[in-house]
């Protein structure tokens, strides 16, 4: 029992259940199947991005460039489809993922080659990518009337459960989560990320190829962001080249809430899934309770600070200091 409670995921799950009970008491409509499905739907895009950020944070880094990469991948892909009159799903998603992956490799290159701080590198690349996108490609929104019909149709795919409709995109998110989970826990490459986050010097002494580790980490974060970007577009039926501004805060908050350590070396996919759900639920409940969006920013900020403080306390206790 003690061992079970020592796992952060269990604690997060318990807090989540408690929060759900409280929100349900304030607003019984919370437990409606439609509301729950709508919440899950809102998990998808943030959640896929969070899987990438989780990987980066385990390696001891941080990434604030993924919203910019997501928007670039999405907008470039959609504009290309519109321009070429191309209809399809698989190829566009591969393209968006690859764009994100290449941009992620750029992060890794700067971080590894010049031994730069990831926060500074990703702030810089985010700004460059957004600037280039809006300056070179344009700022006009691709609306529903011009959006490729194939993407819209794909984003609308649902299944009916108990009289409410649940988006199929949720299963894509969960499948990706399982893949990332297996990657992190069952492959040597995945373990090298934890090892690097724990002690980079020791990781190379033991014989890990730490250069590969860094490139894989940031490429994965970029690829997941690119994929999530296009998915967002097909679920919302438009492509806005100024989308996702400020989203990094939400995603990082969700990952920290899920028990990942900002100092690296700790974090899990299960925790992150729970953290994402909690964040979306809290933000949503604030809307339902009629609280202004400006106050939601305060809530997200508080969540980041409180969750980080708690994980920092936990880590310090584990180190016995």
């Amino acid at each position: 029992m003690k061992r079970l409670l020592a796992r952060s995921e269990v604690v997060i799950a318990l807090i989540l259940i408690l929060a759900m009970i409280i929100i349900g008491l304030i607003n019984p409509a919370f437990w409606n199947l439609e509301n729950l499905f709508s919440l899950l739907r809102q998990n998808v895009v943030i959640g896929i991005m969070a899987l990438g950020v989780l990987t980066v944070m385990i390696s001891g880094g941080i990434d604030v460039s993924f919203p910019a990469f997501a928007v670039a991948a999405m907008y470039l892909t959609v504009r290309a489809m519109v321009g070429l009159g191309y209809e399809g799903v698989i190829l566009p998603f591969i393209a968006a993922t690859l764009i994100g992956l290449l941009l992620g490799l750029m992060n890794a290159f700067f971080i590894r080659t010049f031994k730069m701080i990831p926060l500074i590198v990703t702030l810089g690349t985010a700004s460059i990518v957004r600037g280039l996108l809006n300056g070179v490609v344009g700022t006009s929104i691709v609306n529903i009337d011009r959006m490729p019909q194939s993407l819209i149709a794909f984003g609308r795919t649902v299944i009916n459960l108990g009289g409410a409709s649940l988006t199929v995109m949720l299963f894509i998110y969960l499948a990706l989560a399982i893949l990332v989970h297996l990657f992190l826990t069952r492959t040597m490459l995945g373990r090298s990320i934890y090892a690097y986050g724990g002690d980079p010097e020791s990781a190379s002494r033991v014989g890990f190829d730490t250069r590969k580790t860094i490139f894989v980490v940031y490429a994965l974060a970029g690829a997941l962001a690119g994929f999530a970007g296009l998915l967002h577009s097909s679920m919302s039926w438009l492509a806005n080249p100024r989308d996702f501004i400020g989203l990094e805060l939400d995603v990082i908050a969700a990952v920290v809430l899920g028990g990942a350590s900002i100092f690296g070396g700790r974090g899990s996919v299960i925790g992150t899934l729970l953290g994402v759900f909690m964040l979306v639920m809290v933000k949503n409940s604030l809307i339902i309770l009629g609280i202004e969006t400006t106050w939601q920013l305060v809530a997200v900020g508080l969540i980041i600070i409180v969750a980080t403080a708690l994980t920092a306390l936990r880590d310090r206790k584990k180190l016995g200091a």
Binding site: R186, M188, V206, G265
Partner: peptide, 25 residues
């Protein structure tokens, strides 16, 4: 040169697994 964030078992095993060129754990 140990990994403070990993369990004792994994710290002990990593060398051997790397030595054997394993891809999975």
């Amino acid at each position: 040169s140990l990994f403070p964030n990993l369990k004792v078992a994994e710290n002990l095993a990593l060398n051997t697994l790397l030595h054997e060129n394993r891809k999975t754990v």
